[in-house]
């Protein structure tokens, strides 16, 4: 009884949404403004078939995920060590904080002109020794400019939550480790990292969300010939709103899935944090 009620609660709003969509699609009667649910479902239910000559939904999502992954990993690798240093050493904090603070308010999209001037259409294939083969073709799809935009999007949330996490570590924990004979490296590894981990992982989660959101803007850059972002823009120019919506839904689903993975890690590993007084 309780369970069915719960399920009902979860599904009310989506159901209302779908009904309104259905009703509107019918009364507008124009596929370009609002396609029917069935049109979109057809595309979603066969994600492997090629769409408007741009590859399938799955292909485009895969390439998008790889792009996000590249920029994201770069952001994680830079932001976490830098954030830990800035959180721990006031000198490093002063050194970087105000400088980086200037860049933080700049939306990732505002970097586009500069990024294009710097990287043009060069891609990861630049670093690949051969000019042929399927890997080469694949790497050519991953433009440096895209990686940069995604990197910028993910970098700041991760940096800030890492700094916040490290600065929030209670000094008593660090000092008690010191009186137990821990050296600086011990303290870094066994106190600072685990104590700051919940905040860092939270930042990584937010960062991944932002990185994923930067994707569309990154895939609008010149030279892009694939990716969900590109699919959406291109489908718009050929008036295929159903493909646009299918692409948008895919972006949403992937975003939710990525977030769920992080949430699972958070609830599994960091349950101590909630109950901690």
């Amino acid at each position: 009884m309780k369970k069915t009620f719960n399920i009902l609660i979860y599904f009310t709003i989506p159901a209302i949404f779908l009904i309104v969509w259905m009703y509107l699609a019918q009364s507008i009667g124009n596929k370009i403004i609002l396609p029917s649910i069935e049109d979109v479902l057809v595309i979603m239910s066969s994600p492997g078939t090629s769409l408007i000559g741009m590859g399938s939904l799955i292909d485009n999502i895969t390439i998008s995920i790889i792009r996000v992954f590249c920029g994201y990993v770069l952001a994680v690798c830079l932001a976490i060590p830098l954030g830990m240093l800035m959180g721990y050493s006031p000198l490093t904090f002063k050194l970087f904080h105000y400088f980086l603070g200037l860049f933080r308010p700049i939306p990732p999209l505002a970097w586009v002109p500069l990024v294009l001037a710097w990287f043009g259409v060069s891609s990861l294939a630049m670093f690949y020794p051969f000019e042929s083969g399927s890997l080469y073709v694949y790497l050519r799809n991953i433009k440096l400019s895209m990686i940069f935009i995604i990197f910028i999007g993910a970098f700041f949330p991760i940096l800030l939550s890492t700094i916040h996490g490290v600065q929030g570590v209670r000094t008593t924990l660090i000092e008690s480790a010191r009186t137990l004979g821990g050296n600086e490296w011990d303290i870094f590894r066994k106190i600072l990292i685990p104590a700051a981990a919940p905040s860092i992982v939270n930042g990584m989660r937010i960062g991944l969300g932002v990185a994923w959101m930067c994707l569309v803007s990154a895939e609008m850059l010149p030279g892009s010939i694939s990716g969900v972002g590109y699919l959406i823009i291109h489908a718009y120019t050929v008036a295929r709103t159903d493909v646009v919506i299918a692409g948008m839904i895919s972006i949403g689903i992937v975003g939710v899935l990525l977030d769920t993975i992080f949430k699972a890690v958070e609830t599994n590993k960091f349950s101590w944090q909630k109950k901690y007084r």
């Binding site: 008593t172 008690s176 009186t179 004979g181 106190i191 685990p194 101590w272 944090q273």
Partner: peptide, 18 residues
């Protein structure tokens, strides 16, 4: 410097919560 030969029990709780 601090050393393991001089131990300390703190005024406030100091156990590692994780």
């Amino acid at each position: 410097s601090s050393s393991h030969e001089i131990g300390m029990v703190f005024q406030e709780y100091s156990l590692l919560p994780w």
